[in-house]
């Protein structure tokens, strides 16, 4: 039985290793630059979804204002560059602005949870959208801000799409590792505690509000990072990026992939980006297809693609092993999900 468990772990490691290898070598086997660019988009949207997942999945707080935070860091980058600042200054300022706005968001919205939290973040996101739209002297209004050029860290110019892909991949891997450490840390455990039993956590002496506040800041940091990657990728930022539909889209990425799992948001981001960019070129009614897929997810794997697939896989493989082994495995997987 232990051999079986290690075999499972081995499979898991092998799959992760293969996925990593595929990501690293992606520019070599993709048929063209266009697909490398799609890869870059998946990576920074995955970072965005990972950031939102910290709140949605681990803290149980659903935010509908994250596109506002995503956009405000993108705007900060664009505005700093427009003022003539260097790339590193622009990026640092954008990170600070992104996290600081998240802090303000959290101060206002953490007064409640559940539906109240959703409504407050929704309103705050819309306020940011309105500011981007109306504060024309700062944001250029509807015309947006154009960003010229991409940074060149250590002389490695990111203007080349393949270089940009690798930069996005590096950021992505750092983000995944950060989230993985975060989830396994005692702090991560206490955050999940506030999600499942906030009152009991309070009674145990945990400061629920403060734990949620720090989780918000971490989520804001990842969101800001992805916003900066986004603005350097598109070289353009306009109010549409901050609109409610963008917030809903990233929330769909998290929910379809599997909230509260490490890989779920990544798979969800890949699904949405591929359908939106690649499949839409072949199917005119791609919105319909996306909707149908979400309905299928809700019916077949309501917990999300990643945990759902794992469950289905276990269902299939369990038939082949003897009953006691299966029971033991079920017990162990319950103990350490």
């Amino acid at each position: 039985m232990t051999a079986m468990l290690t075999a499972n772990n081995g499979t898991r490691l092998a799959v992760l290793g293969l996925a990593l290898l595929a990501l690293v070598t992606l520019p070599l086997w993709m048929p063209g630059i266009y697909y490398v660019n799609v890869g870059s988009q998946i990576l920074f949207y995955a970072v965005f979804a990972l950031g939102l997942n910290v709140l949605v999945g681990y803290a149980g707080l659903v935010s509908l204002g994250h596109a506002g935070l995503f956009g405000i860091s993108a705007y900060a980058t664009g505005y700093m560059l427009q003022l003539g600042a260097g790339h590193s200054v622009a990026i640092v300022v954008a990170l600070i602005v992104g996290v600081a706005s998240m802090a303000v968001f959290a101060l206002l919205s953490l007064r409640s949870s559940g539906i109240g939290f959703i409504m407050i973040t929704l309103a705050l996101g819309e306020i940011l959208w309105g500011l981007a739209y109306r504060w024309i002297s700062l944001t250029g209004g509807d015309n947006g801000i154009s960003v010229r050029g991409r940074p060149a860290p250590f002389g490695y110019s990111l203007t080349d799409p393949v270089h940009f892909y690798y930069a996005a991949l590096a950021v992505f891997i750092v983000a995944v590792v950060m989230v993985a450490i975060f989830v396994r840390s005692p702090f991560g455990a206490s955050l999940m505690g506030t999600r499942d039993q906030p009152r009991r956590m309070n009674a145990l002496g945990y400061h629920v509000w403060m734990i949620r506040f720090y989780a918000c800041l971490f989520s804001g940091l990842l969101t800001a990072v992805s916003g900066i990657l986004f603005v350097y990728y598109t070289n353009f930022i306009s109010p549409q990026t901050l609109a409610l539909t963008s917030s809903a889209e990233v929330l769909l990425m998290v929910i379809s992939g599997g909230p509260g799992t490490l890989l779920g948001p990544i798979v969800g981001a890949a699904l949405v980006v591929v359908i939106k960019t690649v499949v839409s070129g072949f199917i005119e009614r791609w919105n319909f297809l996306l909707g149908a897929i979400f309905v299928a997810i809700v019916i077949l794997v309501p917990e999300g693609i990643v945990p759902g697939t794992v469950r289905l896989w276990q269902l299939i493989t369990r038939k082949r092993v003897s009953a006691p082994a299966a029971n033991a495995e079920a017990a162990s997987s319950e103990a350490a999900p």
Binding site: Y34, F236, S238, T241
Partner: peptide, 13 residues
């Protein structure tokens, strides 16, 4: 705008 950027890349690249 973001969709336009992706699609113009598709057409050109």
């Amino acid at each position: 705008p973001a969709g336009t950027k992706t699609k113009v890349q598709e057409l050109i690249e």
